[in-house]
Simulated assay, not measured.
Amino acid sequence: MKLSIGGPLKLAFRPWVEGLENIPAEGPAILASNHLSFSDSFFLPAVLDRKVTFIAKAEYFTTPGIKGRMTAAFFKGVGQLPVDRSGARGAGEAAIKSGIEVLQSGELFGIYPEGTRSPDGRLYRGKPGGLARVALATGAPVIPVAMIDTEKIQPPGKVMPKLMRPGIRIGKPLDFSRYQGMEHDRFVLRAVTDEVMYEIMKLSGQEYVDIYATAAKRQLSEAAKAAKEAAKKEAAAKEAAVKEAAAKERSGA
């Protein structure tokens, strides 16, 4: 399945890659990437010789009907692992457990430290609960990855993807063995996460924003809602002014 999906992706989009030599030929490793697009989880596995497993919502694998079965087959084919995300804490623990199991099997585990896609192409603060805990619990090296221009291929609201070349930069492995056994120290988790995010920033060239992407999305949503309300009030005020002017004109006639 990986070959059947990865081949057409590479042929159609011709992604360029730098740093493939930093991916170990065998053994566990964590690929920590920025997250610009839904397609990130497809392009990265497509350019690697080894299988890389990402976490995906369980709903992608349990939707009934023909479309649901096709979606489940597609996600399985590109190395997505279903995790029940009902309940924030339970979802986080399930993702950590799944990541540890993948690494203990000697495989590659892919994770997005930002926790969600960037709402505006900038790089946001990494969440320390997942990446750092998995890295310290397993001792696996962390390889920073930067996806380039994938958000331009299929912007939000667009059904058909744009044929263009995305890029992937793979950095040198980071060793956090000095923190082994400290996966419950929040200051250590923060330090590990920030170090990884700094390397991703250098690879991607993105502007860094020191807030969580989820908070940024909420702010953008609230700003859009406020702008919509303001536009609605302005339109109502203009309509009222026109009606008032028309009424005065009629009364003066």
Rank of each mutant, 00 (worst) to 15 (best):
54 F>H: 04
69 R>H: 10
94 A>W: 03
66 I>L: 15
136 L>Y: 07
212 Y>I: 02
168 I>K: 00
199 E>F: 06
140 A>Y: 11
117 R>W: 02
109 F>P: 00
47 V>Q: 05
196 V>Q: 04
184 H>T: 13
61 F>P: 08
219 Q>W: 01
131 L>I: 10
203 L>Q: 01
72 A>K: 07
181 G>W: 08
171 G>H: 05
79 G>Q: 13
23 I>P: 03
22 N>A: 12
130 G>S: 08
29 A>H: 04
222 E>R: 07
31 L>F: 09
45 P>S: 11
6 G>D: 13
42 F>S: 10
200 I>L: 12
61 F>I: 13
205 G>W: 06
47 V>E: 06
237 A>Y: 00
149 D>V: 01
185 D>I: 02
238 K>Y: 01
63 T>I: 10
230 A>T: 10
183 E>F: 11
208 Y>C: 12
21 E>K: 15
207 E>T: 13
72 A>M: 09
233 K>W: 07
129 G>L: 05
11 L>F: 14
150 T>E: 01
158 K>I: 04
133 R>N: 07
155 P>M: 11
223 A>H: 10
195 E>R: 06
80 Q>G: 06
113 P>N: 03
31 L>Q: 05
250 R>F: 04
105 S>G: 12
204 S>N: 12
108 L>C: 12
77 G>D: 11
84 D>P: 00
8 P>E: 12
216 A>C: 02
36 L>N: 07
69 R>L: 10
49 D>Q: 15
127 K>N: 09
155 P>T: 03
